[in-house]
Write a protein that binds this DNA or RNA. Sequence first.
DNA 1: ATAGAAACGAGACTGAATCTCATTCCTATA
DNA 2: TATAGGAATGAGATTCAGTCTCGTTTCTAT
Lengths: 148, 148
Amino acid sequence: MAENDTEEWTQRAQRVLAESRHHAGAARRALVELLDSQTCALSAIEIEDELRARRRPVGRASIYRILDELERLNLVQKLQIGQAMARYEPIRPGPGHHHHLVCDNCGTVTPFTDDGLETAINRLSRRVPMRVHEHEIVLHGACPDCAA
Amino acid sequence: MAENDTEEWTQRAQRVLAESRHHAGAARRALVELLDSQTCALSAIEIEDELRARRRPVGRASIYRILDELERLNLVQKLQIGQAMARYEPIRPGPGHHHHLVCDNCGTVTPFTDDGLETAINRLSRRVPMRVHEHEIVLHGACPDCAA
DNA sequence: ATAGAAACGAGACTGAATCTCATTCCTATA
DNA sequence: TATAGGAATGAGATTCAGTCTCGTTTCTAT
């Protein structure tokens, strides 16, 4: 993730938030910046812990409220990856787009990309009886360590 | 789902369970039959309610225990579809294989199939740094009713 | 028939996620 | 710059899916 891509998402998020009739809360800014600094999905609890570690604690209710709002504004995608809790990550246009491998043994989550898959999804999305906004692809299996 | 496909899954499940050094419990049989009678994924709570409604109540602990076991034996797939709770459905060879559309507004889950997608996934599965056992594809969006 | 093992289920417990509501923070306006 | 009123925040209670424990019941090999 290049430094200025990173800048772009935070700025786009702040702009979209500002446009949707809101005050600019400090908790929200901290959370947006944290999300942008990550390369893969975080759970709400990880976000809570990390913000506290950075000396910018944010209440749990606020975290979920902000994540829901970011999701509604299409700024983050909520992922339901195998385990019980949801994970969240920024939606970035183009090359940032990826999907996830999940090791069912140790729980590790690894991102991957595939153009053939995206093509198939796009074609399919037009054929299907629903207006498709997002897609979520998870491959389950055993990671190299656990398959050994 | 043709009637004899239905028969086949229950029978295969019973056989695989019998082969893996088990007694034949009544709760397990009831759950296997319920799963087989469905055309799309059920949550554990829905299973609990439906079994109670059928006058064959099964304890919650047993439901989860049996579902976990069926998953380990590759007889059911556990799906993490958008919402908080997991859903389970029988793994049937061939034409039964499908994926899911989820309406983010009303929560409706609809199955779909796509050969192009399967091809892309199979190709991809060989390229990726993990031994892939299962894949899970969810398209999120607005169903015809909610998009209106 | 029965002993031992496997399966079962009631209910306590855990932890993610939601809800409530009093407090604090922003910003438009004066 | 002060301030009023709405928006944002967060502590804590609550909900609910899922897990765990352990005593009871059921199954099957003998």
